[in-house]
């Protein structure tokens, strides 16, 4: 554990609290992609199956349980409690274009041909693209509520902080996980456009609006 990873994980936690806060205070999940949230549940469930097989630390266990539980809670909020505010007609990204290639990549790149490792690898690849339906929706509508952009910024910061974490681990432990690093760099790259608008508009007090 180093400060980059720790603050990365805190940023991830913050993003989830911001999202739940947005949905419950506005009593609306407008602007949030259900598909992206469903992908995150898939990511957490497939990756954290090792909860039952290997123990790393109390921190690790508590965080895993929190991520699974909170992502399921968000799906409940979107599908049940605030269902009328969820508009599937603008959440049109085709999931098979994401899930299919991730299955293939996991079968090619993994650390062992057993269910746990294959699902772990699948979850890493899937997480790297899980934000795409959300970004696609943002692109389509061309605008976002400020609170939604804070959610995305916290999520992007979490990914960005994992990069110095890997650099630190490479020098301090000689540890490199090529699958995590490659998928992580791709994932962080997907946020670059968003971050540009976030820094130049939202943090200057303007509304998040994309040029027409």
């Amino acid at each position: 554990m180093n400060i980059f990873r720790f603050f990365g994980d805190l940023s991830h936690l913050a993003s989830i609290f911001i999202l739940i806060h947005k949905i419950t205070t506005t009593r609306s999940c407008r602007g949030i992609s259900f598909k992206t949230q469903a992908l995150y549940v898939t990511v957490f469930v497939t990756r954290y199956l090792d909860l039952f097989t290997s123990y790393v630390s109390l921190y690790n266990t508590v965080m895993k349980i929190f991520f699974i539980a909170s992502s399921c809670y968000i799906l409940y909020l979107m599908r049940v409690r605030y269902r009328p505010t969820n508009d599937p007609s603008i959440d049109t990204f085709r999931l098979e274009y994401l899930v299919g290639p991730c299955v293939v990549l996991a079968l090619i790149f993994n650390y062992g041909y057993n269910p746990t490792e294959l699902l772990w690898s699948f979850s890493i690849f899937l997480e790297s693209v899980a934000i795409l339906p959300q970004l696609f929706m943002l692109q389509r509508t061309g605008e976002a509520e400020t609170i939604t952009t804070h959610y995305l910024a916290a999520l992007g910061a979490y990914r960005a902080l994992y990069i110095p974490n890997w650099i630190y681990r490479y020098f301090s432990e000689g540890y490199v996980d090529p699958i995590s690093v490659t998928a992580g760099l791709v994932q962080t790259g997907l946020y670059l456009d968003f971050f540009y608008v976030y820094f130049t508009k939202v943090l200057q007090g303007q509304k998040f609006e994309l040029p027409a």
Binding site: D9, M63, K64, G112, W120, Y162, N165, D177
Partner: peptide
Amino acid sequence: SHEHREHDEL
């Protein structure tokens, strides 16, 4: 080898 390694990152 990466076999039997633990995935300690979240």
